[in-house]
Design a protein around this nucleic acid. Structure first.
Lengths: 349, 349
DNA sequence: TTGAAAGCGCTAACAA
DNA sequence: TTGTTAGCGCTTTCAA
């Protein structure tokens, strides 16, 4: 066999344990433990012998065994439950959380919920079974009482983007209602009177907030609420595209659209393109997305800051893990209107 | 205190253990273990009592303790080392791996390497310390011998996008050389003779492959290799934009560009936009990205299939975890040229 | 400064 | 079918 030894050279060799290292170094188990954990009270020559033995045996401490015995039982691992690890909002949040975690030597378990409440419960359970020190959740469910046992057992908990329901926990939210109102007001300010709304699944609290913001802005402008211009429950780009096409195919179509989410905005753009009306019908989307500024017209959005939300959530989580027992807080991260062109088109037709 | 008990009602309550469940149910520890693990040989009335007790105590099995004792020591957790969890290639791969893992009850630890070899070694170590059953790696380093000890200890290992070096392990690769050659041939076929190349960090094997493919296609077309039209080591959109601007500002600028990576393609688009030449200079990018089809002109790409690569990598990994000891394999996933407009522009100037 | 003994929560091996 | 005992790899506690 060459040095490129592969996966086929026989059964797995057992890993070296602390015992093995102790035996090779001629010291006790506890001395090895002290050296490995950087505890004081070991003379340098002895420590050196231990390190040499560990190196020779390619020793890797077993964190599972360690945290089983250690008081507090920390695993140096946290869980992150996201709508979908592959969506830009989730993955920007993920990266920000990771950066805070890695700096503390903490590993991150991530999973996608697909807006499925059962999946949330299942995956939170899977993480709890692995004894994560904390959980950052962008929830899909609407009753988070099932997490109370974990919380009482000492698992830190931070909700992001959507508040905890029937549970008291920290939260980091974007102000979707004010942000949406701001986006719609922007359209009103450019002269629009018939503004369509395209929204995500109505059971999602953020989708409700954004619709409410849309209504707030209409009311503030003295415009009638037109339920026939509102389409909710759009789960995919395709559904959003169809809904936008339907709205624009009406006898008196809206002169502007407000899209309540990432993928919905993209569906609306596709619909406008297909009709060749992207320079005629104004569009403001909630939540920014990559390349929005390179489209023509560039897309005006109400931008959230997923990275800031992730960093904040991780800081809150680690503060709890470090023993903070202050009353829970809800932090609201502001949104920001980014005018790029599509939202500044004047009404036509 | 209300039922919305928060994080401030005193010290954490200890978790119920199997012992506690056994005591409450009036059975032995082992009987609880059998019920929890769905092992046969427990009568239904007894099993029911155990389940009731577990429910009452909100019992959660401790997977760490379980895998410490269990022969094989599986943790039902795998690690995923990616260039950056927030980049579209990585996150599409991540999602595909997750889907295979979750179906098996396996959790996924994910981390970003940022093309930093030291970070790779550190994070692989952090995962090994947590005794992951397997590791899927898109490596940043160029010597993977450091993983041999893990491999021998039974950790399954699959490399994605870049082959293992000085180590024998399974790999799932895209055929970057052939794909890039295909993209450049496409430009040649549309009449281009001066084709610029913009590439990622030259130390990355895939970047080298793609540059080689570019050269292959030029040679096959009888065109001279023009090192002055090649720019490598572009790490960011901004760097790619500058490099593209420099190339296009030459006395005899290229009539077409081949961009060797995601972000580089976007930088090239920004440069062309800034010059107002996006309808004059042809562009083919390696690796697809969201909304490429909505830009004007829509962007012709050599598409990889990160989801297919992730699914395949996960399947290979779990086959190894399940005991497959066949010789290691390298699977090459084909790329696909997607003509959308930018790559079909004729030469000008 | 160093080490011996006990035990974290669980499963393997074996006994009743 | 059910239970008992030992011990996974490590840290805690306490003694030398």
């Amino acid at each position: 066999m060459t040095s490129l030894s592969g996966s086929d050279d026989g059964p797995a060799q057992p890993r070296a344990t602390m015992r093995d290292v102790a035996a090779l170094a001629g010291v006790s188990l506890k001395t090895v433990s002290r050296v490995v954990n950087g505890e004081p009270g070991v003379t340098e020559p002895l420590a050196r012998k231990v390190r040499a033995a560990a190196e020779r045996l390619q020793y890797r401490p077993n964190l599972g065994a360690s945290s089983l015995r250690r008081s507090g039982g920390r695993t140096a691992t946290i869980g992150l439950l996201l709508p979908d690890v592959a969506n830009p909002f989730s993955s920007a949040l993920h990266r920000a959380v990771e950066d805070v975690a890695v700096a503390r030597g903490v590993a991150v378990l991530a999973a996608s919920l697909d807006e499925d409440p059962d999946r949330e419960v299942r995956l939170a359970g899977a993480f709890a079974t692995r004894r994560v020190d904390g959980l950052i959740v962008v929830p899909a469910s609407h009753d988070h009482g099932y997490l109370r046992a974990e919380q009482r057992a000492g698992t830190a908990l931070v909700f992001v983007d959507r508040p905890p329901v029937l549970l008291d926990a920290d939260a980091v939210l974007a102000d979707g209602r004010a942000g949406a109102a701001n986006g719609v007001r922007h359209l009103v300010g450019h002269g629009h009177r018939r503004i369509g709304f395209l929204g995500d699944l109505a059971t999602i609290t953020t989708a409700q907030d954004r619709l409410q913001g849309y209504r707030d802005a209409l009311a503030a402008a003295g415009l009638a609420d037109r339920p026939d211009l509102v389409r909710s429950d759009l789960r995919t780009v395709e559904q959003a595209e169809s809904a936008a096409l339907a709205l624009l195919g009406r006898r008196h179509p809206p002169t502007a659209l407000f899209a309540g989410q990432n993928l919905v905005t993209i569906g609306a753009i596709r619909a406008l393109r297909r009709l060749g009306r992207q320079h005629e019908v104004a569009l403001v989307g909630f939540d920014d997305f990559p390349l929005a500024d390179l489209l023509e017209p560039a897309v005006t959005v109400v931008a959230q800051d997923p990275a800031a939300m992730g960093t904040l959530a991780a800081r809150l989580l680690f503060a709890r893990i470090d023993g903070d027992t202050d009353p829970t807080t809800t932090r609201v991260v502001p949104t920001r209107l980014v005018p790029r062109g599509s939202g500044e088109l004047p009404p036509r037709g």
